[in-house]
Amino acid sequence: MTINWFKFASPAAFYPIAGRLIPWFSGIALALVLVGLFWGFFLTADQLGGSNPQKEYYRIIYVHVPAAWMSMWLYLVLAGWSAIGLVFNTRLSFMMAKAVAPTGAIFTFLALWTGALWGRPSWGTYWDWDPRLTSELLLFFLYIGYIALHSAIDDTRRADRAAALLAIVGLVMVPVIFLSINCPDPNQCASLHQRSDPGSIHLSILIPMLTMTLGLWSYSFAAVFARLRTIILTRESDNAWVRDVIAQETTA
């Protein structure tokens, strides 16, 4: 039995699927975030020990790392759908890319914000031109650039293609962010971020951090699908199927 995946690639087919998935992703996101927060605040040590004796502010790890991961992951998704759209000229791919961008920009901002509030008490500064901080800031500009470029061009098809190109060109930033701290000798580089290795994070901290990551990942699905549905309706408003859907939809 083969499934015709292209059947789902049409906006009309995907609109109801996304609508059915949103409550699931929202529910899972809420549950995981609540578990992660409870675990992170009540079931872990208040302070760290050993060679990294951070105080209560280390708890920012539970939002900072998930936000930073999501910012990079969503950019990959944005660039991926942009590339698919450019190559196969599928409408839904461009809509998907456009729907991802604002959520990605929010997570990038949050990674910078929570990082600043973590850096101040631990490193001694809110901001530094550390390679990783700088490249994350660039990623934020790329998201903003994508959104601005898209909204500056009136013709939807042109806007899709121009913004998609920008997204693909900016893809070079993601490995830069990821590799920017892999400085083998801390004496030889100005980077404040250190090599991060999940193996050196104790399970009691790693598990709530990963739970929060999955929660925010699930949230991203829900938010992107919700935005996608609005984009589909706006762009397809001339089609007959929208008329039928609209008649049934409740405004709530």
């Binding site: 502010y57 708890r59 509030l117 938010a223």
Partner: peptide
């Protein structure tokens, strides 16, 4: 939070505040 309330709640507050605004 051991005297780090501003940092900790500033980070968590901004995160969930922004997500709420997005919703």
């Amino acid at each position: 939070q051991g005297g780090y309330a501003g940092y900790v709640w500033g980070a968590f507050g901004m995160t969930f505040g922004l997500l709420l605004i997005e919703v």
